[in-house]
Amino acid sequence: MTLIGRRSELAAVEQLLDRAATGGGIGGHLIVTGPPGVGKTALTGAAADLARARGIPVLRAAGTDLDSGLLIWEQLLGDLEAGELPPDAGPRDLDRVARAIARGGPRLLVVDDVDRAGTRAVAFLALLASRLGSGATVLIATAENPLGLTPELRLRGLTEPELAGLTADLPAEAVHAVWLASGGLPGAAIGLAGELAGLDAAAAPGCERPSWRSSAFMKSEPPETSTSRSTAAVDVGAAIVGRLACGGGRIEVGADSWRLAQARTREARWSGK
């Protein structure tokens, strides 16, 4: 299984799955955190593929609704046919359900964006994690911010050479601009690279060909915040925003849905050289 820049993370997943798949397997959990667009969903998708390759069934749930509480876990309970949570579930009810989920296996449970479901969902995650040793169930949960649970994998942005593997159709200068503008986040970088691929100044009448020699390109580190990344995308990504500066459009930037609004011509730093 190849996932650019995630070799050690995949190794941790494989270790969990192998331990659960062996005779008398032992379950366990892994918390994957990081900002939107860093590749949490890609990693859990790869984990699901690795599980299926070992003959391990996969069940998924997602915290799509803010503060939905235990609903995310009730989805899994229904799929596992492990009973129901009473509306006024107390500590004993929750512990009973956690034990029911942990028993049996091997199987992989993937819970995306558990933090979106709120504190009750996260508290049940902590309880369930403490019970997983009683069976062969593996749980991988994702969240934007650390949950105070270990083991945790905090995903980082990709390095520029790693990002080049995702944007092989772009020249090196363009890859550098995409890396700066995205902060190395794969989701944002793929969206930006898609805007750049095959871009031709001739297709935008009245636009001059952008220069990749802007002093902004000389930066060696990507910006840290989504606000500064958006600014950088306008500032250093002259080719990215060129079409917009002439056409007045906007870009959807990758999985993060960052929107680079109405690019202003004066910020694009055009050069006819």
Rank of each mutant, 00 (worst) to 15 (best):
L3P: 00
I4K: 06
E9S: 14
E14D: 14
I26M: 10
G27A: 11
G28P: 08
H29R: 10
P36K: 03
G39I: 00
A42T: 02
L43Y: 08
G45F: 00
A47I: 09
A61G: 05
A62G: 12
A62Y: 02
L66A: 15
D67P: 03
S68K: 14
I72L: 15
L80T: 09
G83M: 07
P87G: 13
D88L: 12
A89P: 03
A89V: 11
G90W: 01
R92V: 15
L94G: 05
L94R: 06
A98P: 04
R99H: 08
R99E: 14
R103S: 11
R107I: 12
R107C: 07
L108G: 01
V110P: 00
V114L: 05
A117Q: 09
T119E: 15
R120Q: 12
A121T: 01
L125Q: 05
R131M: 11
L139S: 03
A141Q: 10
T150E: 11
T150H: 10
E152N: 12
E160M: 09
L166R: 00
A168V: 12
A174Y: 01
H176P: 05
L192V: 05
G194F: 07
A197S: 00
D200V: 12
C207R: 10
C207Q: 03
C207N: 06
S214H: 14
M218A: 15
E221D: 10
P223H: 08
E224S: 02
S230A: 14
D235I: 06
A238K: 01
V241N: 01
G242P: 01
R243C: 01
C246I: 15
C246T: 10
G247V: 07
G248L: 02
G248E: 08
G248R: 13
R250S: 11
E252D: 15
A255I: 08
D256M: 12
S257T: 14
L260G: 09
Q262D: 14
R264E: 14
E267H: 13
W270Y: 04
G272S: 10
G272H: 13
